[in-house]
């Protein structure tokens, strides 16, 4: 009787089953499919990786499915490369782990790629005729706009969290504000990132970009009373034929605030300072002789933003 009683007690004590570490039929919630990048752009490649922190998946067979179709080539791989679907279309990635004991684990991840475009608009100077975009320079103001689409613009309200070099812009998430301004740093490739989430905090897209830093650059152009600013950059040596010639300097990518209110603007002819007219970026040269060569120099500088400055020179052959 006593042995029977002991056997009944032992067989019904659950902690014995746990102590034997038997995992047959046990589901491990620590196994996930991780994507890199976490939010792939439409029709771009991404990597799906099994992350199993428990020991349950040790030695398990791994089968991958993409939208329900088994990927034979991916069997037993822990990491595979796939292509995201088109914007707004959903795809499911599923991994099935079969342990040696016959236990099955299914983990899946659904992705719905969205376009998250970050449009950088530096507030630096370029002339009217210039068809390109202005570039960022140190301490210049940058406007950034995030456009999220599937491929049509998403409707509804979203939170935008902007970070510039890991500092959150404006201190936190911005509700329905997809546009920010910030001051460009002085390092070569600072990072700007934006995270878009629903109002309940669910992240739907995230993107990081580097912004290249450049320096202002000076070009000289002729100004004609008939044509206005002629869009051909003057090159040294420039042959001065007419008796009078008006030149304008364009400091490309100089911060617009500095361009509109420069602290220092100087013109020189062969090292001697000369005064411009009403426009500090224009000078009119009157020929008083011929057969000489002179050097026209220009400099613009901010005294508060020390990296906001530019200088250049042009050689003239007076004919």
């Amino acid at each position: 009787m006593r042995p029977l009683l002991i056997g009944i007690v032992l067989s019904t004590t659950p902690w014995f089953a746990l102590a034997q570490f038997e995992t047959s039929g046990f589901i491990d919630n620590t196994t996930t499919v991780v994507l890199d990048p976490a939010f792939p752009s439409p029709e771009t490649d991404f990597t799906a990786t099994i992350n199993d922190y428990g020991a349950d998946g040790f030695g398990a067979t791994i089968e991958w499915y993409f939208n329900g179709t088994k990927l034979d080539w991916a069997t037993n791989r822990r990491s595979i490369e796939l292509t995201a679907p088109r914007a707004g279309e959903s795809s499911e990635i599923q991994a099935v782990l079969s342990s040696s004991g016959g236990a099955l684990q299914r983990v899946s991840q659904t992705i719905t790629p969205l376009y998250l475009d970050i449009i950088i608009e530096p507030q630096t100077h370029t002339p009217n005729f210039y068809k390109g975009r202005a570039l960022p320079t140190p301490d210049s103001t940058i406007n950034a706009t995030a456009l999220i689409s599937n491929p049509n613009p998403l409707k509804g309200e979203y939170l935008y969290t902007w970070r510039f070099n890991n500092t959150v812009i404006q201190g936190g998430p911005l509700r329905n504000i997809n546009r920010v301004s910030f001051t460009m740093s002085q390092d070569s490739f600072p990072v700007l990132s934006v995270t878009v989430s629903k109002l309940n905090g669910t992240i739907i897209a995230r993107r990081s970009i580097t912004i290249p830093n450049t320096t202002p650059q000076v070009f000289f152009y002729e100004v004609s009373t008939l044509y206005g600013l002629k869009p051909i950059a003057l090159k040294s040596p420039f042959e001065l034929i007419s008796n009078s010639n008006t030149m304008r300097v364009v400091p490309y990518n100089l911060d617009s605030e500095v361009y509109n209110n420069p602290n220092v603007v100087t013109w020189e002819i062969d090292g001697e300072p000369v005064s411009p007219g009403n426009n500090p970026y224009e000078i009119t040269l009157e020929k008083t002789g011929s057969g000489a060569q002179v050097e026209v120099g220009f400099r613009v500088q901010s005294t508060t933003k020390f990296l906001q400055g530019a200088r250049g020179s042009l050689s003239l052959n007076i004919l």
Binding site: D117, A134, L135, S149
Partner: peptide, 20 residues
Amino acid sequence: KPAEELEGYVYEVSSDVFRR
């Protein structure tokens, strides 16, 4: 506007469409 250092994107636009 194009710049070799900055990324650009093309959108189709009309009175009721703005599509990437």
